[in-house]
């Protein structure tokens, strides 16, 4: 029996040592080595280092695909980058900005705000993308946000047995993925965006109204969620500390979807009051774009034509503001 217990302890000890070393390797490799095709937008952002920007765009896929940064830069003679990421809510935006300004310099942040970003549980934005931040678990800011969104059991487990976080999300962090990076092979799944500006090119299609009439039937109520507000406040605070100007904007939505949002008028009015109280300017002049379905690929994402129109609109608004 004694021999069995010794062997069992040795088995657990060796396994844990191996898995601990593996998790340290993941910490290192997944923060320093990219896939050959720079597959993930967040990683592309986190790898940026020592650059200077006049402005960045922060938000979800609605921001990522709404603004053509190259067009803005060519007309305004400024240097910008689009940090919009699919599914990102305020918590994600906060971490992206925090990590970005630790290694880069910037003057202005244009933050996308809308109903969905204040109620991220509703599915238009994910409340938070945990797997993407696992390698940064030991960074205090990331750790704090992860704990906020994680299950309590996981927080305890990840603190005392760190490799278990890679175990849970081993779909993204298994040895095959590790090898793909080391061998500079493309990732299976890729975020499609322009590597110089961060802008996502819209699909070459136009929103099909038949799809809208059949698929968009569910009416929804949107609220302002405490958790989302908390991370908006953190973004404001972060900009303040780093002396960065923060301006908000709303990306266009197809006008008919607004009819399905039962309390839209009230909630949007609350949001604008809230932003006003925080002295945050809002850029919102989308009506002319929102009435035409050809400006969209779906109810909330712009088409090529829509992106172009919105970008010119945006340039006009920021130029007016600067004047």
């Amino acid at each position: 029996m004694k021999s069995f217990l010794i062997r069992l302890s040795l088995f657990l000890l060796f396994s844990f040592i191996f898995l601990f070393l593996y998790s340290r390797l993941c910490d290192y490799l997944f923060t320093t080595v990219e896939y050959a095709n720079k597959a993930a937008k967040r990683e592309w952002i986190f790898m940026k280092n020592g650059e200077k920007y006049d402005y960045v765009i922060l938000g979800s896929s609605r921001a990522e695909g709404a603004l053509d940064i190259k067009l803005v830069d060519s007309i305004t003679q400024r240097k910008g980058v689009n940090l919009g990421v699919g599914g990102a809510g305020f918590a994600d935006n906060y971490l992206i900005l925090d990590k970005f300004i630790k290694s880069n310099k910037l003057k202005t942040v244009y933050l996308q705000v809308d109903l969905y970003s204040f109620d991220s549980d509703k599915g238009f934005t994910n409340s938070f993308s945990i797997p993407n931040y696992l390698p940064f678990w030991n960074e205090p800011v990331v750790n704090e946000v992860l704990r906020d969104f994680n299950q309590k059991n996981d927080n305890v487990l990840w603190t005392y047995v760190p490799f278990t976080r890679y175990m849970k999300y081993n779909k993204y962090y298994n040895p095959f993925e590790l090898l793909r990076r080391l061998r500079k092979i493309d990732a299976y799944q890729t975020d499609k965006f322009d590597f110089s500006s961060g802008t996502k090119s819209p699909e070459e299609k136009v929103f099909n109204m038949d799809v809208f009439n059949t698929n968009y039937k569910v009416s929804q109520n949107f609220d302002i969620k405490k958790k989302d507000l908390k991370y908006l406040n953190k973004i404001i605070e972060l900009c303040k500390i780093n002396n960065i100007e923060l301006i908000t904007f709303r990306a266009p939505e197809f006008y008919k979807i607004k009819d399905l949002q039962v309390n839209r008028a009230t909630t949007m009015s609350h949001i604008y009051n809230l932003l006003k109280n925080k002295n945050l300017p809002v850029l919102d002049n989308n009506n002319s774009i929102e009435i035409d379905h050809r400006n969209f690929v779906d109810a909330t994402h712009l088409s090529v034509k829509g992106q172009n129109l919105f970008t010119y609109n945006f340039i006009q608004l920021i130029t007016q503001k600067n004047d």
Partner: peptide
């Protein structure tokens, strides 16, 4: 370790 690294959790 294979269970930990490849198990579907």
């Amino acid at each position: 370790t294979l269970i930990c690294l490849f198990g579907s959790f």
